[in-house]
């Protein structure tokens, strides 16, 4: 994927020079090994800073929320789906955006550069679903990957084992909120964790508070999560919080046949009512 960068720089430079956009959102070399950091380029001469390789894990849609200017954004498959989400949720308009599509071959695990990170290994949408420019030919999509193997494994457990599993999963959490800051869906001006009247959730690292936080964070992503993996990539404690969002993703897929961020023409299932919506949970 390193070969893309020439084309990315070329497109960015052209867009900045002819004034089509005021800034380009992309990645530059980070200060930590094996991690690139998001950056905003506003001068054509800075385009040389841009990089692209297998360490561009974060989701750039996160930096578009509520922007007023014209923006170019470099988008791999999941980024583009989150951009669709942003457009659906009126956080940015399509006219403001120039989307530089990157056919993605998957990002590598931050702890083990030999293998793809978990969500990329089972990704079904590597090509951007929406783009204006493309920096390479589209790649072949993965087929016959089992996306929900781990979810089914947990589903098969007994209640107490499930509880213990998540207890164990969340032990390292320090509530630094890196996951919610990296998440392109978490853009509320005041997050429920910061609300104090009423205070929904304690501030400390009480296990129940941690669980409430992760549960509610995941729930807020229901029908919106694109499984981009930014939360796990950002977590300093390597917590696999995708176990929460994955379950919701699977349910949305099974109950409503919905996958987030594939089209701007359709309202998401939790936002629309249909007479035949499943209601098995009501007695």
């Amino acid at each position: 994927m390193e070969s893309y960068i020439g084309k990315i720089k070329e497109i960015s430079e052209r867009l900045l020079n002819d004034g089509t956009v005021e800034c380009v959102v992309g990645f530059r070399k980070g200060t930590v090994a094996l991690t690139n950091e998001p950056c905003m380029i506003t001068k054509a001469s800075d385009v040389q800073d841009l990089v692209w390789d297998e360490n561009c894990r974060l989701n750039l849609a996160n930096y578009l929320t509520g922007r007023k200017e014209k923006i170019a954004v470099i988008a791999k498959g999941c980024d583009s789906r989150n951009i669709v989400n942003h457009i659906i949720e009126n956080k940015i308009s399509r006219e403001q955006l120039v989307i530089i599509g990157v056919p993605c071959k998957g990002m590598v695990d931050k702890n083990n550069p030999e293998v793809l990170q978990a969500n990329c290994a089972t990704c079904l949408h590597r090509n951007p679903v929406i783009y204006d420019e493309l920096c390479a030919d589209l790649v072949e999509e993965q087929k016959e990957v089992d996306r929900y193997e781990d979810v089914r494994k947990i589903e098969a457990m007994e209640t107490q084992d499930k509880w213990a599993f998540f207890e164990d999963l969340l032990t390292g959490c320090t509530r630094c909120y890196a996951c919610k800051n990296a998440c392109p869906l978490c853009y509320c001006p005041t997050c429920f964790v910061d609300e104090s009247q009423p205070q929904w959730i304690g501030k400390g690292t009480d296990p129940i508070d941690i669980r409430t936080y992760h549960f509610l964070r995941a729930y807020h992503c229901a029908g919106r999560c694109t499984d981009c993996g930014a939360c796990e990539a950002a977590c300093p404690q390597n917590i696999k919080m995708r176990h929460f969002t994955k379950k919701l993703e699977k349910d949305c897929n099974e109950l409503y046949g919905w996958e987030a961020g594939l089209t701007v023409d359709q309202r998401p299932p939790l936002d629309s009512f249909k007479v035949d919506d499943p209601d098995k949970f009501i007695m």
Partner: peptide
């Protein structure tokens, strides 16, 4: 909602819905 609760290890009967 309920599904994720149960997924997380809360007993199914702790959260109930009905329509009256």
């Amino acid at each position: 909602m309920k599904n994720l609760m149960e997924h997380m290890g809360v007993e199914p009967g702790r959260l109930q819905f009905s329509w009256i």
